[in-house]
């Protein structure tokens, strides 16, 4: 028997098949990247636990949004464009203002820990001092955000955005000072170190039920 060549497979319809698949994927998938502001909620507290020791008045920056979406810091109405700088000032407190948050240098923290004999903190502080220098300050300040049940979500996010923005700017400034690079461009372990100096201390208080919807 003569060897018959295998006839070539017709690939003309291959394009049609591929087009069909392509259109299927175009229709059933989405391209949107999910982004957002990551936040950690405080763990829920059982009712009978004792209250934690109160934080000093000067270490809390109270930010309120009322049901008409007006913003107030420490009771004074302000515009949202001022918020970012107010938060930054409050946290770093460059002139050691009595009304703004208390700051402690790493050297002070280490001395405190030595006095109380807490070896873990001493180690932590020595590690941080090696990188950031003894005069870098850690703030005790906490930003407390309180909203009303009637506050619009868009306004709430706008305020959150400013708060996170303030902390991000501080992190960036520190990163550039120490590493010469922006925070986002640092490797992860350096980001963790920067976060130890500037923690994202935003507390979300439970809303007041006054005001209603």
């Amino acid at each position: 028997m003569a060897k018959r060549p295998i006839p070539e497979i017709n690939a003309g319809s291959m394009a049609d098949i591929a087009f069909l698949l392509l259109i299927f994927f175009l229709v059933t998938t989405t391209m949107d990247v999910d982004g957002g502001m990551a936040r950690k909620l405080p763990p829920s507290i059982p009712k009978d636990t004792p209250l934690p020791p109160p934080i000093k008045e000067r270490n809390v920056l109270a930010v309120h949004i009322n049901k008409d979406n007006n913003l107030a810091v420490e009771g004074n109405p302000i515009d949202i464009s001022q918020l970012r700088n107010m938060v930054k000032d409050f946290i770093i407190n460059p002139r050691n203002d009595e009304k703004l948050s208390e700051t402690e240098t790493l050297a002070m923290k280490k001395a405190d820990a030595l006095a109380t004999g807490n070896a873990k903190i001493v180690n932590d502080m020595e590690r941080l001092i090696r990188i950031f220098g003894p005069n870098t300050t850690i703030s005790k300040g906490v930003v407390s955000l309180q909203n009303d049940r009637g506050t619009k979500y868009a306004k709430y996010i706008e305020v959150q955005n400013e708060l996170v923005g303030a902390f991000n700017e501080l992190k960036n400034e520190l990163s550039i000072r120490i590493y010469g690079k922006e925070f986002d461009k640092l490797p992860e372990y350096q980001q963790e170190l920067v976060k130890e100096i500037i923690p994202l201390s935003i507390s979300e208080a439970e809303p007041r039920n006054v005001g209603g919807k």
Binding site: G35, K40, S44, Y156
Partner: peptide, 28 residues
């Protein structure tokens, strides 16, 4: 949705706290 009132969002957050799902992300 951006026009939602915070009331319902807060209720959801409280439920998440109770369920111990503490890592959240405000999608924007």
């Amino acid at each position: 949705d951006e026009n939602t009132n915070m009331g319902i969002v807060t209720d959801v957050k409280m439920k998440l706290r109770e369920a111990n799902a503490l890592k959240i992300n405000y999608s924007t």
